[in-house]
Write a protein that binds this DNA or RNA. Structure first.
Lengths: 110, 110
DNA sequence: TTATATACATTGACAGGCGAGGTATATCGC
DNA sequence: GCGATATACCTCGCCTGTCAATGTATATAA
């Protein structure tokens, strides 16, 4: 993990929104998806993830509801809102811009 | 500015090291270079930049010395150290890795 | 019955970014 | 001579996001 963790800081919200864009999900599952997508190279720390859920819900970008599992631990599902979809698209655009800026700024090829 | 500022967070040290890799420079000049390289789309906030200088110097990635200007405001020049060059190369590698991870995580194309 | 996996959540410390404020020198227009 | 602007430095204190540590509860496998 360690490596890149600093650099992915700031993308937590976007990562969560991107997962929820594909369909409702819950914390544990989202985190597993993140690990699977990166071949275990990255994971959302639980504290970070739940902080992000609170933040995203308080700004109405996502909504939550309890699943109706008959067995096993209870799950709090999250759903992306229309505002959340708009925010996701905006964040994706910002990433494209930021990526280009960073490329320009950290290469030594004058 | 605003946009992307969050996303470039974490690259401040790399940006400064990259500029110093090209040759000794001082705060004001580095910041102008950053603005010029990004066509005014990004700038290092002074407080952020000077905080970074302190951090980089305390970890021996850069060294500083006063310029001998006969006129005008005094300038504190910075020089990258061998440690700094190594750190820069490492950070650049980490960026390549992080970039790929982010791309995988924020796109909705499953 | 002990360990592991699933699943949630909070607290408190830490680090980086940055607005606001401050200092000093030089030049340009009026 | 005077105010504005550019150059050039610096620090304090707040804010925000990350995350280690800790805690809860259920189900299953050894």
């Amino acid at each position: 993990m360690s490596i890149a963790s600093d650099l992915i800081r700031g993308h937590t919200d976007t990562i969560i929104l991107a997962q929820l864009f594909k369909g409702d999900s819950y914390g544990y599952e989202i985190n597993k998806a993140v690990q699977q997508l990166t071949d275990g190279q990255y994971e959302l720390k639980e504290a970070t993830m739940y902080t992000a859920f609170r933040r995203l819900e308080s700004t109405h970008l996502i909504e939550s509801y309890w699943g109706d599992e008959q067995t096993g631990a209870r799950r709090r599902y999250y759903r992306i809102t229309p505002n959340g979809r708009a925010a996701y698209r905006r964040l994706q655009g910002e990433w494209e811009v930021a990526k280009e800026l960073i490329e320009k700024l950290i290469r030594i090829k004058e």
